[in-house]
């Protein structure tokens, strides 16, 4: 199980990073989503994998999963939601003002690559 989860976390990270490096804002938002899944699972994994022992106290049970990573992940999910929402609205505003959903705010020139040193228009 350890290997499977580690591999999945790695895969989610890889997909997230790849999308994060794309040029369109929507892809970046999706990449951030995948990346936060990976991070949340990683945080949870820091409490080690425990089956059927939720950290809810009840009589007759002596073993519980580590509650601290769970508390951290809960916070992370909330903040992640706030950030995704802000990011996506920011992207929409950028498109409204600049007319492009490219992350640099301008469509790259006909040569295909923004020339280094050239500052994109600021919104």
């Amino acid at each position: 199980m350890n290997l499977l989860l580690a591999a999945l976390i790695g895969l989610l990270t890889a997909c997230g990073v790849f999308l994060l490096l794309r040029a369109r804002t929507f892809s970046v938002a999706l990449g951030l989503m995948l990346l936060s899944y990976a991070v949340n699972l990683l945080l949870l994994a820091s409490g080690r994998l425990v089956l059927q022992q939720p950290p809810v106290l009840e009589a007759g049970r002596a073993h519980f999963a580590d509650p601290i990573p769970q508390a951290l992940v809960l916070t992370a999910i909330v903040i992640g939601f706030g950030m995704t929402a802000f990011l996506i609205v920011l992207a929409l505003r950028a498109r409204a003002v600049l007319g492009s959903d490219h992350v640099d705010g301008v469509e790259p020139g006909p040569s295909g690559s923004a020339s280094p040193g050239e500052t994109p228009a600021r919104g």
Binding site: N2, L5, T13, V17, F18, L21, A23, L42
Partner: peptide
């Protein structure tokens, strides 16, 4: 997407990042 924006470089970076995080989790 802007095709000229080096998908290979990004893929390599993404793979390395994924491997690194997987190793960390492991």
């Amino acid at each position: 997407q802007n095709a000229l924006h080096r998908p290979w470089r990004d893929m390599l970076l993404a793979l390395a990042a994924g491997l690194g995080v997987a190793a960390l989790a492991w």
